[in-house]
């Protein structure tokens, strides 16, 4: 198996406070191969965005990485200096944020912003960078790219702006693209277009993609594998088909049950009782146990490790510990 583009090991992110450190991302591990799309789903506050921010080294202070390792193309990047990390951002990791309406600086024409980014990461001249910008905009589907280069962000619609943002994220041909809720702020009709575009661009370039969303539809459409996060931990990870069609973890099952099916009329959607715990009140053992319909004694005391439940599928749940006494080794 070739070396993964991104490899995250036991990542732990937290916020020091007066009453001790709050851990928001706790022991998260995953790999993404070249050309692969990994989706991260979960409720707000599950630690999805923070995981993305940790990878690009832009956690808002006072938050910081408390432990674990992050490798990009085999090179450890979480220990790089600020300046070295800056060169990784944009050059090797492209990023797309949620709101295209506010991602662009309103006072500069979009062309200037693209040229600036290209020239930060490549030795291209201004004219060459401009040509490249036009090519990128064409590729991301901005009509009349040449003329629109001098347009200001407010002259573009939301969908068009997200295409510009995508062009900006891809302008240095990064190995990894992190898309944090890339379609949440868009119209439903535009969402599908952006997803299709993102998918095509990543496939063409062999870019590894980490897509963060709370929308299972986006995951189903776009991702190869999916990792479900709950309370700062990955509770289930595996191929999208496997996880969507036969979810193993009770939380994932609840999540799937809460999506209204198109084919059949259901009188009432499944609901997970309760709410995700606050960061300062994460229960001992499995963080999900107070809401879990199948919780038993062990769940309340011992934190479940990720266990292999199917080929390349893992769930962090004691239901799948083969002998229900000792925890099995973590699946590879």
């Amino acid at each position: 198996m070739p070396e993964p583009v991104l490899s995250v090991r036991h990542l732990k992110v937290g916020f020091p406070t007066r009453r001790g450190t709050l851990t928001a991302v706790d022991g998260v591990s995953f790999d993404i191969a070249a050309g692969e799309v990994l989706g991260v789903v979960g409720e707000s506050g599950a630690g999805k965005s923070l995981t993305g921010a940790a990878i690009i080294g832009l956690i808002e202070p006072p938050g910081r990485i408390l432990g674990g390792e992050i490798y990009l193309g085999g090179q450890r990047i979480d220990t790089l200096t600020a300046e070295a990390m800056r060169k990784v951002r944009g050059r090797r990791i492209g990023t797309v944020f949620q709101d295209p309406l506010t991602s662009l600086n309103p006072l500069y024409p979009i062309g200037d912003q693209i040229v600036e980014t290209i020239r930060t990461h490549t030795p291209l001249s201004r004219a060459a960078a401009r040509k490249r910008a036009v090519a990128l905009l064409r590729e991301t589907g901005v009509q009349g790219a040449e003329e629109r280069l001098d347009g200001y962000p407010h002259e573009f619609s939301g969908g068009m702006r997200q295409r510009v943002v995508l062009a900006l994220a891809l302008c240095a041909e990064p190995e990894l693209l992190i898309a944090d809720e890339p379609t949440t702020a868009l119209d439903v009709s535009i969402q599908a277009q952006i997803i299709a575009l993102l998918k095509r661009l990543a496939k063409e370039r062999g870019t590894a993609v980490l897509i963060i969303t709370h929308d299972m539809g986006v995951i189903a459409e776009m991702a190869d594998r999916v990792s479900v996060m709950y309370s700062g931990r990955i509770v289930e990870i595996g191929p999208v088909r496997e996880v969507v069609l036969s979810p193993r973890h009770p939380y994932t099952r609840g999540l799937m049950g809460s999506i209204p099916p198109l084919a059949a009329r259901v009188p009432r959607l499944t609901q997970i009782p309760g709410a995700m715990p606050r960061l300062d009140a994460i229960p001992a053992g499995c963080a999900f146990h107070p809401r879990c319909p199948q919780a038993f004694d062990r769940c309340r005391v011992e934190r479940p490790e990720r266990l292999a439940v199917a080929p390349s599928c893992e769930a962090a749940c004691w239901l799948y510990a083969v002998p229900r006494v000792a925890p099995a080794e973590v699946g590879a």
Binding site: L58, F97, T102, L104, E116, H121
Partner: peptide, 11 residues
Amino acid sequence: DYIKFARARGL
């Protein structure tokens, strides 16, 4: 957000 995005672009 645009400052966050500018940083994410590696400027």
